[in-house]
Nucleic acid binder design. Structure first.
Length: 938
RNA sequence: GCCGAAGUGGCGGAAUUGGUAGACGCGCUGGUCUCAAACACCAGUGGGCUUAACACCUGUACGAGUUCGACUCUCGUCUUCGGUACCA
């Protein structure tokens, strides 16, 4: 008989909600602890078993910290603006707000069933006007700020104006345009990732492999006026401050790569017979004597002036080609070298040589100056370009012997400079210093640091996002007054772009600032609201401020932040950026949002595939083959003869039958009977499959192919936590998700081990109960024995250490060991069990509350005190020493811990068994490690 | 290509500063209980050798090395997963 988890869990979930057990106070004498989960986007698919993994971990820590006497802030909310709800709205006409509300209700219901200790009074939703009012407010602050390089922080734009020459004499439009070059939120013409299918631009990190991350649509480059945030101003600080936060090395490394700092020099090349100059950025100015050509990006503005008449046609054609080559193509054939000679030449600033000027799409317009100096001998890309177009290759750094510079470039930043005039003979490191100072002395350029990081495009041509609080007056953008916020998202008749290609907001009727001025029509990107939500949780109801000073100063920053690693270069970079910005303005007391970050591993799904026939002939019925049939060596098996028969009957010709192909298609895993067998009848009840002909294995089973993939609705492999809560209870789900393995590791979901965890909870329950049905609560008040005390203290120590190391899988094992040992001792003593219930309460709170109440406590176990362990009570007087000979363990020997190493040695050597292994020889050496091991070298 | 993480039984995974490899759980085998099943309980379970036991050999991706002693440290090789991709 299983313990009554159903009743218990319902009872305590209600109790916690009614009593507001987990309410956090903004004023407290207790130390604070802020445990934050990345809030979810409430998708229509509901919560799957991957979501709670991190939530359970942070919940364990939160409950543990409460027991340790902390005032814990553990909130939850919803990142509720975003594309899927809008796509759904376009399809169905249903307002995204409605969809979002419904989805949130479902998420909430699912989360409530798992027994999280969230303070629900602090819930935030980014799509709520009371919330996005402050997102807009921060945008206005960004607009009104610039980054002062001298103070190295953001300041009000007012401090910039006195530094600008002749500013007051400029026209309004000119003033606006000038300041736009400085504002941290600014409007500019920018090359963007335009996704025609989604009808919007995407940020760099929303594009994966040249297609949109959501939906997988092609992305092309387009020049458009765009609102952007000047995150690049913070590049250095975003990089340097990584040193001081306890985040995983892999996340820090991806941020470092994303920021991509490189040091080098700018260098100007004069164009021959022209006033034009071309500035390049290079990290290897030491190779300047190896330059044999220059390459410009196809987007370069200089092209029109540079290109000679006879090359104009070819250049135009190339530019056209390069522009229309989608990002995807560019990326998929990186190896393909393309380019075009402009006909123009540049003058080498040191040697005066004439260098041909080329364009090539391996040069990116957005990085550096959009121009590179070609040093084919020491840069593999330049090398490939030079080889392809037959340009000379000139070696200027010594390479290892037998290195054929014509065949392969020598890119390493080491060796002696050769053929290099004034830096001849210098090591690269020294040559760099010397040549940069020479470049600076001659006024050709200067030492420079370049970042890969680009400014973040902030506008989206979409409906379901925060309106940007900007209006246009005489073509000049103005931000709204703070007291006019929020700028509420207007109603529209359709969620599609207008016929003229304007964003959906252009459909809003009479939507004008003060009834006169056009509002900005783009909305903010998905990451806007999530860039500061951790602050709003501190004071979510505040009507006057984004959060009150007292709350901000009390909670400060997040102590533990848990979420997916996929946000490494998106959200996690933006939230750091906004934090630093708000700090610069004196609005918050911290420069980093989270001290500690843990990336929980992804819980993958097991997709199921079956083979489907595809034929050109429409008359052909669709056949489905069991997994193994296609892999049989003898394809002419009985089944295949039948397959052909069917096709013949449908009127297919021999050739058409030959052309029939089979492809694996995903089917919903709810159609499976067990691990790899399909319930054919169930699948046939679905309309897409009802006319299919299914071919089974000889034994009558229809097998599917299982493959581990990301768990997602579109892959039909989602497992929700609900069934487990119903069948085994939330406590089992919580323990099981932790027991699966280390938190940070990705793993496919399988329920094979769940009975073990469930069995443990029942066993634990039985420690407190007697009778046939284990329904009589019986506890003894006897004094505990020494072994019982030892078990208790060992467990306290282990659980505490494991929680502090976020090693939850091993704590679950420790609980199991503890229950096994106490069961063995038939221990039902209050003095042992009571503290263990407290330990367990962070992991399995419902059963713990119930037992706690039965133990006679009136208050929730949340307010109990975490027991302390005493090392002295855990140790025995003796230790069972493993005795090894030449490092090989041979036998064990129980020895008193009071013995000195010399005494141990004597005892061991005197032992009968030792004599056998010594074979009469004298031991060369005896190593005794007290309380560890004895090793005898023979 | 580059960066990061990781390779341990049939499976998920344990193993303090280098100190009994395989904890705990699943699965499997045998048994007790039961009319039967479920639950529960007991015993066993890396591989090899041996009729069997005692014992022995071998074993943490592979190959070397350091050490009294290596899953753990060093060097090299291979594989898998994740991130990233012409950033000059």
């Amino acid at each position: 008989m299983a313990y009554p988890f159903g009743e218990i869990e319902k009872k305590w979930q209600k109790h916690w909600a009614d009593k507001k057990t987990f309410r956090a106070e903004n004023k407290s004498v207790k130390p604070k602890y802020y445990a934050l989960d990345m809030f979810p986007y409430p998708s229509g698919a509901g919560l799957h078993v991957g979501h709670p993994l991190g939530y359970i971990a942070s919940d364990i820590v939160s409950r543990y910290k409460r027991l340790k006497g902390f005032n814990v802030l553990h909130p939850m909310g919803y990142d509720s603006f975003g594309l899927p709800a809008e796509q759904y709205a376009i399809q169905t006409g249903q307002h995204p707000e409605k969809t979002t509300k419904d989805n949130i209700a479902r998420y909430r219901e699912q989360m409530d069933k798992i027994g999280f200790s969230f303070d629900w009074e602090r819930e935030v939703r980014t799509s709520d006007p009371n919330y996005y009012k402050w997102t807009q407010w921060i945008f206005i602050k960004l607009f009104n700020s610039w980054y002062n390089p001298e103070t190295d922080k953001a300041e009000s734009i007012d401090t910039l104006i006195p530094k600008l020459k002749n500013f007051s004499s400029l026209s309004e439009k000119e003033k606006s345009d000038t300041l736009m070059n400085y504002r941290l939120a600014y409007l500019s013409e920018a090359w963007v990732n335009w996704c025609p299918q989604l009808g919007t631009v995407l940020a760099n990190e929303e594009v994966k492999d040249g297609v949109s991350e959501r939906g997988g649509y092609p992305v092309e480059r387009k020049l458009m006026p765009q609102w952007s945030l000047r995150i690049t101003a913070y590049a250095n600080r975003l990089l340097n401050d990584l040193e001081n936060i306890d985040w995983s090395e892999s996340i820090k490394e991806s941020q470092r790569n994303w920021i991509g700092k490189s040091e080098g020099s700018s260098l100007k090349f004069q164009v021959a017979d022209s006033k034009l100059g071309i500035e390049v950025f290079t990290t290897r100015p030491d190779t300047v004597f190896g330059v044999t050509f220059l390459t410009l990006a196809p987007e370069s503005e200089l092209l029109s002036e540079l290109t000679t008449a006879e090359n104009k046609k070819a250049v135009d054609e190339y530019v056209h080609y390069a522009k229309n080559r989608s990002e995807r193509e560019r990326q998929s054939d990186v190896k393909k070298v393309t380019g075009q000679f402009t006909g123009a030449y540049a003058i080498h600033p040191f040697t005066g040589e004439k260098l041909p000027i080329w364009i090539g799409d391996y040069v990116l317009a957005g990085y550096g100056t959009g121009a590179v100096m070609g040093v084919p001998a020491h840069d593999s890309r330049d090398h490939a370009f030079a080889k392809h177009f037959g340009l000379p290759i000139k070696q200027v750094v010594e390479a290892p012997k037998d290195w054929d510079i014509q065949k392969e470039s020598f890119d390493a930043k080491e060796g002696k400079c050769i053929n290099s005039d004034l830096i001849n003979g210098l090591e690269v490191k020294d040559a760099l210093k010397k040549i940069i100072s020479e470049i600076e002395k001659r006024g050709l350029g200067k030492g420079k640091t370049q970042f890969r990081l680009r400014d973040a495009i902030f506008g989206r041509q979409r409906y379901w996002g925060e309106p940007i609080p900007v209006y246009y007056k005489d073509g000049i953008p103005h931000v709204m007054e703070e007291n006019e916020l929020p700028l509420v998202l207007p109603e529209v008749d359709k969620y599609l772009p207008t016929e003229d290609g304007e964003p959906p907001l252009a459909r809003a009727k009479n939507w004008k600032h003060q009834g006169k001025y056009e509002y900005e029509k783009t909305t903010m990107p998905g990451w806007a609201g999530s860039s500061w939500y951790y602050l709003r949780y501190m004071d979510p109801q505040n009507k006057n401020e984004f959060a009150g000073k007292d709350a901000l100063n009390y909670w400060k920053d997040v102590d533990l932040y848990i979420g997916g690693a996929e946000h490494a270069t998106g959200h996690l970079l933006y939230v750091r950026f906004w934090t630093k910005f708000l700090f610069d303005l004196g609005l918050i007391p911290v420069i980093e949002p989270a001290k500690k970050l843990i990336n929980q591993g992804m819980i993958q799904g097991m997709s199921a595939f079956i083979y489907q026939s595809i034929s050109e002939n429409k008359l052909a019925p669709t056949l489905y083959l069991s997994n193994e049939l296609l892999h049989k060596d003898d394809v002419r098996s009985d089944s295949f003869e039948k397959v052909e028969e069917i096709f013949v009957k449908s009127g297919l010709s021999n050739q058409e039958i030959k052309d029939v192909k089979y492809r694996p298609i995903r089917i919903d895993i709810s159609n499976l009977k067990n691990e790899n067998e399909l319930d054919v009848e169930k699948l046939k009840s679905k309309k897409d499959f009802k006319d299919g002909v299914f071919f089974k294995e000889e034994d009558g089973r229809f097998l599917v192919l299982r493959e581990v993939e990301k768990m997602s609705k579109s892959k039909y492999n989602v497992v929700t936590p609900d069934d487990i809560c119903t069948n085994f209870g939330a406590d089992t789900l919580r323990l099981y998700e932790m027991f699966l393995g280390p938190l940070e590791q990705s793993k496919p979901w399988n329920t094979n081990g769940i009975s073990g965890v469930f069995g443990f909870l029942n066993k634990f329950w039985r420690l407190f109960h007697k009778g046939e049905e284990f329904d009589q609560f019986v506890i003894s008040n006897d004094e505990p024995t020494k072994p019982e005390i030892k078990i208790l203290h060992k467990t306290i120590k282990k659980i505490q250490q494991d929680i502090e190391n976020y090693s939850f899988n091993t704590s679950v094992s420790a609980f199991m060991i503890c229950a096994n040992e106490l069961t063995e001792l038939k221990c039902n003593k209050r003095s042992i069990l009571e503290p263990i219930v407290i330990l367990l309460s962070s992991f399995a709170p419902h059963i713990a509350e119930e037992l706690w109440e039965k133990l006679g406590h009136k208050e929730s176990i949340t307010f109990a005190k975490f027991p302390e362990f005493n090392e002295a009570l855990m140790t025995d007087d003796s230790y069972d020493y493993p005795i090894s000979f030449n490092g090989k363990m041979r036998f064990n020997m129980e020895l008193s811990l009071s013995l000195t190493p010399a005494e141990i040695e004597k005892e061991v050597l005197a032992n009968e068994q030792s004599k056998k292994f010594l074979e009469g020889k004298q031991p060369k050496k005896v190593i005794v490690v007290p309380k560890r091991i004895v090793n005898i070298v023979v």
